[in-house]
């Protein structure tokens, strides 16, 4: 009788637990600069875990506003550290879940081949119509771009030629459509498999701007969600890291 009870309780607990372990959907809000890398990582995680990952890409600022007002995300991958910090202060983050999943790299890019010679010469020459950058008020890549310009003493001389994207995707769009000759974009947008995909670029030495540390958090509402926790664990695994590196990011 006792065995029977034990057996049935095992069966019962498997029935209860299994749906929450397998084939669960994880809703993740992801900063747009991490789009390509996250698609690859999510695909691998889905294959290995059997869970499904539903990705939403956008600007971190908008995600914070949405999460504060009950958006059904479980995981948030920000483009910076301030926004996860703000959510943490608002008590919306699961304790000790925050970590830096990637350190972003900045590149000066042109859609035209041979326009930039992997150095700052063309930027210094002033021989371009516009230079696109992400709005530094909103995007950490914009802050980094301003630091590079200031470091080169070009802030004042290029100011007239700035055009600002609301986020790094829009900045990329301004350059890729040829409306701006040059632009400061995320290296991850122009790099795949460790190679620059098109145009010409200057991969800016990392000592010219403060590190763009991007933090991820598990949201309070998903504190006990095994699949969501699993995705964050996977994000820290060696497999995920090698994907992250292939898009030009560094990790801790």
């Amino acid at each position: 009788m006792r065995q029977c009870l034990a057996l049935s309780s095992i069966v019962f607990s498997v029935l209860l637990v299994s749906p929450s372990v397998y084939a669960e959907a994880v809703y993740a809000a992801v900063a747009s600069n991490f789009t390509d890398a996250m698609k690859d990582i999510a695909q691998q995680y889905e294959a290995e875990s059997g869970n499904k990952v539903v990705l939403t890409f956008g600007s971190s600022g908008k995600f914070v506003a949405q999460i504060q007002h009950g958006a059904p995300f479980q995981v948030f991958l920000s483009a910076d550290q301030n926004k996860p910090d703000a959510l943490e202060k608002a008590g919306l983050v699961a304790a000790n879940s925050r970590f830096t999943y990637a350190i972003g790299a900045l590149a000066l890019w042109s859609a035209k081949p041979n326009f930039i010679d992997n150095n700052d010469a063309h930027l210094k020459s002033g021989d371009f119509n516009k230079v696109a950058l992400a709005n530094p008020k909103l995007a950490p890549y914009g802050v980094a771009a301003m630091e590079v310009l200031a470091g080169l003493g070009l802030t004042e001389s290029t100011k007239e030629k700035w055009v600002m994207g609301e986020n790094i995707s829009q900045t990329y769009q301004f350059v890729s459509t040829g409306n701006a000759d040059l632009g400061f974009v995320a290296l991850s947008q122009i790099m795949s498999q460790g190679q620059i995909k098109s145009g010409s670029s200057w991969i800016i030495p990392t000592d010219q701007y403060s590190p763009i540390r991007q933090d991820a958090v598990l949201l309070k509402s998903a504190e006990h969600n095994v699949a969501a926790q699993g995705l964050l664990d996977y994000l820290r695994s060696d497999k995920a890291r090698s994907i992250i590196h292939s898009y030009g990011y560094q990790t801790e």
């Binding site: 696109a132 008020k137 055009v163 600002m164």
Partner: peptide
């Protein structure tokens, strides 16, 4: 391109405030 006095209109300014 969010240029003050040229293209940064009120609706964009509101969006910027919300994003920030």
């Amino acid at each position: 391109g969010n240029i003050p006095g040229q293209t940064r209109v009120v609706s964009v300014q509101i969006y910027d405030h919300v994003e920030a």
